[in-house]
Amino acid sequence: MAKDLPEWAIKGELILNCNCTVFCPCVISLGDHPPTEGYCMGWAGIRIDKGNYDGEDLSGLNVGLLLEIPGKMGRGNWKAAAYIDERASDKAYEGLLKVFTGQARGTTGLFKVLVSEFLGAERAPVQFETEGKTRRLTVGKAIRGEISPVPGHGGKDMVITNTEYWMGPDITVAKADKARVRAFGRVWDFDGRSAEICQIDWHGPN
């Protein structure tokens, strides 16, 4: 039961890029609308500004994810892989792995239900950098991504607010300036495709 699982919390920022040609419809439809290409291939980066798992500090660590979804998000049958910051302690590594496979329940518990094939997890140099409004994720030679917000009226960021999206209620609309994935047999190039920026405040097991 959830009450027997360790408590965990993560605050920070998530960036995501997928193969949708325009902004990902999953945010607004909550997965009820299929991706623009009928299937989803994407990567995500998580910067943990403040976090802990069962008393172990996670602050300052980064995580990279690989996601593959064959249709509507809510139908499951996802494939996923995780890259955990090589600076993580053994306990932090195990904790983050449980968080991002859904075993830790809470906000990311849906991974346990929706992911049918976990491709694997690796320790890796995961760099999450911000320069102005541009975010960059570099995971060794596996993921090299750079995204920037799509400017709205007056040059301000275009933000979809007050959503029920699992990642967080406010999603900044972005686009990939560069996006290369070379991992687990996948060779993806998503320059110019849909991207998202989200401030996260996740916790578990409840």
Rank of each mutant, 00 (worst) to 15 (best):
M1F: 06
K3F: 08
L5A: 14
L5R: 06
P6T: 09
A9N: 12
L14A: 12
N17W: 15
C18V: 07
N19E: 03
T21V: 13
F23E: 13
C26W: 02
S29I: 05
S29G: 12
L30H: 15
G31C: 08
P35D: 05
G38F: 00
Y39K: 02
C40F: 13
G42L: 05
A44W: 10
A44S: 15
I46C: 08
R47E: 11
I48Q: 05
I48R: 14
D54F: 01
G55R: 06
D57L: 08
D57V: 08
S59W: 02
L61H: 13
L61T: 11
G64W: 05
L65H: 11
L65C: 08
L66F: 12
G71K: 01
G71H: 01
M73I: 03
R75K: 07
W78F: 10
W78P: 08
A80H: 04
A80I: 04
A81K: 05
A82I: 14
Y83K: 12
I84A: 07
D85C: 11
D85L: 03
D85I: 07
A88D: 00
S89V: 02
S89R: 02
S89Y: 01
D90F: 00
D90T: 06
Y93R: 10
E94R: 02
G95C: 06
L96E: 02
A104L: 02
T107S: 11
T107Y: 01
T108A: 15
T108K: 00
G109K: 00
F111M: 04
V113F: 00
V115N: 09
L119T: 03
L119F: 05
G120N: 15
R123L: 13
A124D: 14
T134F: 01
V139I: 13
A142V: 15
A142P: 09
E146D: 04
P149Y: 07
G154P: 07
K156W: 10
M158Y: 08
T163I: 09
M167V: 08
I171V: 14
T172W: 04
T172S: 11
A176T: 13
D177E: 05
K178C: 11
K178W: 10
V181A: 10
A183S: 14
F184P: 03
R186T: 03
W188Q: 08
F190L: 10
F190D: 06
D191P: 08
I197Q: 13
I197T: 12
C198V: 15
G204E: 01
